[in-house]
């Protein structure tokens, strides 16, 4: 078991190269026990390679890591694989075999005592208790994903790696997977979730990391928004201001401003709650018809796109 208070995953300057090609480079992060940690990034960013490296399927080129309390070394590989489970993007089920036969095979590979009990428990956890005898090839994509999740839960892993678990699923099936991840969180399972779905990450993850070969940012979604965009107020007026610089300059807590559209302004502030009344008074004093003043909402998607755009060749940094 990982020691009390020790992180479930601790990654220090980890890199993986395939010849001259860099899969990911100098990645550092920690994932706490029981945390749902999102790992975001565009295609080819190195997300799956990171999962495979932490899952001992690939050897890192440099750096170090601790996985489920064990140093990531070749000698510890089998022991680490006993403590974790990986659900790859493709469920990878034996389609000619039944759900039960698939799970039975993996229960034996993990040498689980009382396999029948564990299989029943895992199937109940993914709401497939009545489908044990179904042939996997006859199941819908969403159900196959649930069987794959049941398979990953069989060994009661300390850390569960979910690689794009909702990829290719319709919204209903994706919602079912989200509910299952919520269930894992309640049970205290550490989940390492790689995904393209930013709303999914925002809703499900305690913290997220954005990877684009190197780690671009890490933190709670709200923190990332503030770190990248700062704190801003969005002001809408009926008409454009004659001299907005004079209106906003010198107001307490206001750091700067920029126009947005014909009669809109984004005002950078230190504390939105403190600055908003002063901004409102200044606008009214300047004779502006104020339509709205609100705290600017940036989604995780805004953060993600901003960071990835910065990495595009030729983009301003």
């Amino acid at each position: 078991m990982a020691g009390l208070g020790a992180p479930a995953l601790s990654v220090r300057h980890l890199s993986k190269r395939f010849g001259d090609q860099i899969a990911f480079d100098d990645v550092c992060f920690e994932v706490e026990l029981g945390e749902v940690f999102g790992f975001l990034g565009p295609n080819g960013a190195g997300k799956t390679t990171t999962v495979r490296t932490l899952g001992t399927l690939l050897a890192p080129t440099s750096g170090s890591a601790t996985v489920a309390g064990l140093p990531l070394t070749p000698d510890n590989s089998a022991q680490i694989r006993r403590r974790i489970a990986i659900m790859p993007e493709s469920p990878g089920l034996y389609l000619r075999l039944s759900v039960l036969e698939n799970l039975r095979c993996f229960a034996d590979l993990y040498e689980i005592p009382d396999p029948a009990g564990r299989i029943e428990h895992a199937l109940r956890a993914v709401n497939l208790a009545g489908r044990a005898q179904d042939v996997c090839g006859a199941l819908s994509k969403g159900m196959r994903q649930r069987v794959a999740l049941a398979r990953a839960l069989l060994a009661d892993p300390q850390v569960l790696f979910l690689d794009e678990p909702t990829s290719g699923l319709d919204p209903v099936a994706a919602r079912e997977v989200h509910a299952l991840i919520d269930g894992l969180r309640r049970r205290g399972v550490t989940v390492f979730l790689t995904t393209h779905r930013l709303q999914e990450a925002e809703r499900q993850c305690d913290r997220v990391a954005i990877l684009n070969t190197t780690l671009r940012m890490i933190g709670r979604p709200g923190e990332l928004r503030e770190r990248l965009f700062g704190r801003t107020l969005t002001v809408r007026t009926a008409g454009s201001l004659d001299d907005p610089g004079r209106v906003f300059a010198g107001l307490p807590g206001v750091r700067g401003w920029r126009p947005e559209g014909t009669a809109g302004y984004v005002v950078e502030v230190s504390e939105p709650e403190m600055a908003a009344p002063a901004v409102t008074r200044a606008l009214v004093a300047a004779g502006a018809d104020v339509l709205s003043i609100s705290r600017t909402r940036h989604s995780l998607e805004d953060v993600y796109l901003e960071l990835i755009d910065q990495d595009e060749p030729g983009s301003p940094t």
Binding site: L57, R81, G92, F106, Y110, A148
Partner: peptide, 11 residues
């Protein structure tokens, strides 16, 4: 078939 990765991810 994509079935090998889950197998080799076990002990």
């Amino acid at each position: 078939q994509g079935t090998l990765e889950p197998v080799i991810a076990t002990p």
